[in-house]
Write a protein that binds this DNA or RNA. Structure first.
Lengths: 147, 147
DNA sequence: CTTCAATTCTTGAATATTCAATATTTTCAA
DNA sequence: TTGAAAATATTGAATATTCAAGAATTGAAG
């Protein structure tokens, strides 16, 4: 018996495409809210990571906020100008720079957090509690299995 | 009774972050494979959409491949130089440009498809059949509910 | 018909990102 | 202890993306 003709799946069925599409849409919505404070999503991520009050090296930060090093350096330059964060040389390893959040940064971060929470709540409403937590679980496990 | 203190969820728990992280990782893997043919992911998407043989307008394409118009125009310029695609003015609406895939584009697209299929199979292996289809389902539904 | 608004695509300037190279410091082997 | 290799962050040039404006065409109201 002949093989069935291998139908060429449209791009919309690829996992990579669905992820890109969903990411784009959710990110667009988040951007929209954060733009109320004139802050790009990446800066919110940076502030959020630093808001534990500890110093974080640039490399650590770059991993955490999904930016590569040079891009992060330049974004941090802007944030330092805006006095949202500041640099301190790591006394234990002087190759490293430790980043800290400023008081002004903390205030801004709180505002941004509540804008972001707004969005999460909006998603919960339209998409459902159960779907959301299931989706999160699956995404975490996908990320795990990719390492 | 006092409310429990609202603990500030770390960024890694936000849906927007998980999506960005998963997208980044899967995209990185796909890029790696497609780089064997020296083609960026977006160009593969373009070729794949055009490989139905029909003409697609720039606006339609931009939506389909998740690029904004000027970025797409410039990428298409490159692909025209490489004779992978070509432009035809839409006879029914001369504001529009219809994009078509060339024979050379078709040949390349086939090679790229098999590289992409490799990746999907790799994901299926490490992540599982069931999780994958469930994740796809949830992503589709999230995208739906966002419109 | 004519005109004005809307649609579609492209262009050029401003901005952002990336790659490769550099500077500094640490690590570790000889 | 010295010197080479690795790790960390930044810089500058090359590249890519985005925003705002422009050109061409269509649609539609008066």
């Amino acid at each position: 018996m002949a093989k069935p003709p291998k139908q060429n799946s449209p791009i919309t069925e690829h996992l990579a495409y669905l992820l890109a599409q969903a990411n784009r849409e959710i990110n667009r919505q988040l951007e929209l809210r954060l733009s109320k404070e004139g802050v790009p999503v990446e800066q919110w991520r940076i502030l959020k990571v630093l808001s534990d009050g500890n110093g974080h090296s640039m490399g650590e930060l770059a991993d955490a906020v999904l930016l590569n090093h040079p891009t992060l350096t330049k974004m941090i330059d802007r944030m330092v100008s805006d006095t949202l964060v500041y640099r301190v040389q790591d006394p234990n390893d002087r190759r490293k720079v430790l980043m800290f959040i400023s008081d002004r940064g903390k205030v801004l971060c709180k505002k941004l957090n509540s804008l972001a929470v707004d969005q999460e709540e909006h998603i919960l409403e339209s998409y459902g509690d159960k779907s959301t937590s299931e989706l999160k679980r699956l995404l975490e496990s996908l990320i795990d299995s990719s390492n």
